[in-house]
Design a protein around this nucleic acid. Structure first.
Lengths: 146, 146
DNA sequence: CTTATAAAAGATATTTTTATCTTTTATAAG
DNA sequence: CTTATAAAAGATAAAAATATCTTTTATAAG
């Protein structure tokens, strides 16, 4: 459904949000390890998310990544997906036909539109804050391993 | 959603079915051109579909690919997807977490399950015959260009 | 049996995605 | 100002997906 990059990115944002909520800045190394993602590659993705103003970063000693709680309420999953995977999840025919549209639909057009629009609406209605809330609790899998 | 290979494969099967219903065997070359897919690559995919008994092939002069109408009623889209893309569309967490399941769900687990199960059921309830029916008509895009 | 045709099989090439490694830049603290 | 730290930026590498090219096999028709 999503690219690996995108999965890493979503996990990273959730982790950064959690750490910020605990009062910590967190490093690439820590994020990668906590989210089970390759370190350098995760660094690249964090760069992209920072450039696109999803998370903030601070260079140098005591630096790291963070995202303020107020902001988590405004960042939708769809934005993260769009930044990393682009719009390919929203556009295009299920059979990969360029000429496919409502007026001249491919055989699975309608069913496909339905499924994709529910995916889209899921991504557009879920904020990082929502994810964060659902991740509070002792046994949650994105929590920092100790 | 699906890999390019899978899109080529689905288009190819629909085209072969249509041609068979018109009483024609059809070649890799014709299939590729009619479905706007790369020829040699489509050949590989047709090989796979033949080995997996989705379509039939006949070598030599007057040979080609075909799928009998009776069979189109038994072949589900899900089978084609499974053969080409495997089960990755059915399994795995939206965030790519290995530990994610109903007992220890990731933040988007439930919503993701819903969307995927509707995709799954779409693929499992749509037969090649269904697609074929919806593709009969003068203006349909998968029809042979003349 | 020979020839022509078309798929199957195998080898190789290209592109994209994923991943790592190195150098540069910013900054906090002494 | 120097040093240590951590992200940013750039270069390179590895793996996977997509694509092509060549050789082999099967078979219909003369």
């Amino acid at each position: 459904m999503f690219s690996k990059s995108c999965e890493y990115g979503m996990r990273a944002v959730i982790y950064v949000a959690k750490q910020t909520s605990l009062g910590n800045k967190t490093s690439v190394k820590e994020i990668a390890s906590a989210t089970n993602s390759p370190e350098a590659f995760t660094g690249k993705i964090l760069q992209k998310l920072t450039k696109n103003n999803i998370i903030d970063s601070i260079k140098g000693p005591y630096g790291g990544f963070l995202i303020y709680e107020e902001k988590t309420k405004t960042i939708k999953l769809s934005q993260i997906v769009e930044i990393i995977d682009g719009d390919k999840i929203y556009t295009g025919c299920g059979l990969g036909l360029k000429e496919c549209n409502a007026k001249n639909p491919c055989p699975i057009h309608d069913k496909f539109i339905d499924i994709r629009s529910s995916l889209k609406s899921m991504l557009e209605t879920t904020t990082v804050y929502d994810l964060l809330k659902s991740e509070t609790g002792e046994d949650k899998i994105l929590q920092l391993k100790r």
